[in-house]
Each structure stands twice: as structure tokens, then as C-alpha cells.
Design a protein around this nucleic acid. Structure first.
Lengths: 199, 199
DNA sequence: AGGTTCATGTAACCCGTTACATGATTTC
DNA sequence: GAAATCATGTAACGGGTTACATGAACCT
């Protein structure tokens, strides 16, 4: 029975958004776990959890992967705090995460991960790449939206009133994201580029 | 050392949306795990996972809690499939979930759970309760939106361009949900109620 | 000296993911 | 009677939650 329809696939175990959020934050400003926690509780990054039981383990995972390291120098003096910063490998991994293709799955499971990526792009990737990302984000959302609209047309009659309302909530959310992406692209274009096409 | 600071508390471990999605679906139409899986893959319910590794364990948890049971009668005949349906306790638990208060946390962590609740309300709770739910959903979103706008005003200058853009994506999403909730309320009002106030 | 805040963790639990297993029943 | 499909599961893993634990530094 040597027939393998069973895909031999590589346990692709999607890393968590929290991990990348931490890594990105350290990118912008090396700090201790405690500092990060404060930042996460005080900002909308709280969306990705702010409990020590999530943050410290996540930091240790990043360290075990060699993506972050304690900055030496200020080792065991004064308080016990450990300032962390990304390693070269960490910076590479982060960049790869930022530049990865936008998949349908990313959209179906919620745009949070994608928006998080965008948030950290300034300074880490070139404006051209940011624009490309926004365009493919917009296109992926559009494609999914069209899928859903088609589904709605087909099933509408079998759906309850609140079922339809809930569905429309999703549609409106996606439409808002498309408009936002267009707007963001205009803002990007209005910048830096000396290629302005105004007469 | 007989001191129990160890809070004897009820591990409030928020039940998963997937569980309630399954329970709600069984509410509308008793079916087997296999059927549910097909439904979940074929509809936007896929948002809450459609893998057998999630669905079957979730169903077993529901059964262990006594919230669902196999419908007798069609026991071990033909295929091995087991049709499941909610028990009385399951119906009670489901109603409680539908009618629970809308918290800030529900909004911060994403509106999915709330929208899922709405989707299952038709037929299970009275229109008045649906309207009340929509109003408190809208109000909770408004409150959180105001928080975020305030945060933006305070921090804007310290944020990067893409940071700001990402932030605005969130704001626009929330604004869209508020508009949608208003629209949904109007739709509800335009219905059934003999109390129509048209002259 | 005693309480507060700093700072980092851990244990138990629940839940989803990927990948694979296993039989039974149609269908050709 | 072989292949596809039906139908239900399991094992290993990653990772988040709640609730505590612990010790050191600082303040008064």
C-alpha cells in the first residue's frame, strides 16, 4: 500500500501574531519584557494579548529561535531587567514575514495579521514594497468579498433575518477595508516619489 | 501553612466560538459531525475553523457537558453516522450565550463572537432582545472607537506612517460596524411590530 | 522595617492546527 | 473486489488564559 495521497507536508504551523508583534516592537526600540508588557497594555497592541503568561513565553520562544538576544553591556547591574533586541537572523525573519505573499487564508481568518504587518513596514521595507503590499491586500479582500456576495445571492432565501444581517456586517467590514486601502495608497503616492504626475 | 490565597475561582475560560457555532447550527438543524464539517467548509462559518481535528473534539466537549445528544431512533443502521441535537440544558446555555451582556473585551478582541451571536438570534430570542443587543453592540463599539481616536490624537506624532495607516484601518472598520448596526436597527424596526409609527 | 512597584516567570488548562489512522460502505 | 468516499477520530504540537509565585529594589 505505497500510495501516498497523504500529502507529505511540512508542518507549517503559522507563527503567532503576538510573536511578530513583539519582534517588531523590539525592532523599533529594544526593551525588556516588562517594558513590552506596559506598551502592550497601554496601546491597541493589547488586541494581541498583554498578559505576562503570553508575553514571556513568547519572548523565550523568540530567543530559542535565535531571533532576539539580550543586549550585553548592561547585564547584571541594578535591577534584574533584561533589554532585548533582534539578532541578524531575527531581522531577516521579520523582513520575510513583512514581505510574504498575501493569501486568501490571511483574509478569511481576519485582517489583523495583515494590518499588523503594515504597521511595522515603515523604515523596514521600501515604499514601493509597501504599495505593492497594499495593492495585493486590497485585491485579496476584493476577491473574498466577491465570493461572499455570490454566496449571499445563492443562499439569501434560506437565511434568517439575523443571519443575513450578520453576513452583511462582514461584507461592510470588507468594503471598508477596500476603501481604506485605496485611501492609504493615495497617501503613499502623495509622498516622497519624485515621479509625481501632476501637470 | 493553611493559608489559601489560592482563589477558589471558577476558571472562567471563555468557551470557544467554534463550540457555540456548532451548537447554534445544531439548533437550526440536527446533523452529524460530518454534515457540520461540510457546512463549515462550504460557508463563511469556515472562519471558525473547519478541520476535523477541531470539530470532532469540540462536539465531544459539548456532549460531555450534556449540551448535545445523539438523536436515538436512527442508531446503528446503515452508515455509522450519528445525528446530534441540543439537549434542554444545551438550549438553555445557548440562550444565555445569546443574551449575555456585551463587554468591552468582546469588542477589543474582535467583533466576530458578537456577530456570530446575532446570526443565531432569529427564532431563538424575541425581536425586542435583538434590538437591545444591537444597540449595546453599537454603543460598545462607539465607546471603544472614542478611546482609539483619543489615543491617536495623543500619539500620532510619535507614530510612523504605516503605523498610522494601520491604526486608521481599525478605526474605519469600527465606523463601518457602527453604521451597519444603525442600518440593522432600522431594518428591525421596519418589521413585524404593529407599533409602526407611520401616520 | 514594611509595603509598593519592578521584573520575570510557572502550572494547569483549553483549544486549534497539521498530519495521519481506521474502518465501513458505495460505486464501478 | 478495488477505489473512492463516508464518517469519526487521534497524537503531537503551538500557543493563549487565568491565577499564582518569587525575589529584588525603592520609598517612607
Amino acid at each position: 500500500m505505497p500510495y501516498y495521497n497523504q500529502t507529505t507536508r511540512t508542518m507549517k504551523t503559522r507563527d503567532s501574531n503576538l510573536g511578530y508583534a513583539l519582534l517588531g516592537q523590539l525592532h523599533q526600540d529594544p526593551s525588556s519584557g516588562y517594558d513590552l508588557r506596559k506598551i502592550f497594555t497601554a496601546t491597541p497592541l493589547a488586541h494581541f494579548s498583554d498578559s505576562p503568561g503570553a508575553i514571556y513565553p513568547a519572548l523565550n520562544r523568540l530567543r530559542r529561535r535565535g531571533w532576539i538576544e539580550p543586549v550585553p553591556g548592561e547585564a547584571p547591574s541594578g535591577r534584574r531587567r533584561q533589554v532585548l533586541r533582534p539578532t541578524a537572523a531575527g531581522r531577516r525573519a521579520f523582513r520575510n514575514w513583512l514581505l510574504g505573499a498575501v493569501t486568501r487564508e490571511d483574509v478569511v481568518r481576519g485582517l489583523d495579521g495583515l494590518v499588523l504587518r503594515l504597521a511595522f513596514m515603515s523604515g523596514a521595507v521600501r515604499p514601493v514594497e509597501i504599495a505593492a503590499f497594499l495593492r495585493s491586500l486590497r485585491d485579496a479582500v476584493r476577491a473574498y468579498l466577491r465570493e461572499l456576495e455570490q454566496f449571499l445571492r445563492a443562499e439569501q432565501s434560506r437565511m434568517s433575518l439575523t443571519g443575513r444581517l450578520a453576513f452583511e456586517s462582514g461584507l461592510e467590514g470588507l468594503r471598508a477595508q477596500i476603501r481604506w486601502a485605496e485611501h492609504a495608497l493615495r497617501r503613499l503616492r502623495g509622498l516622497g516619489s519624485s515621479k509625481g504626475s501632476r501637470p
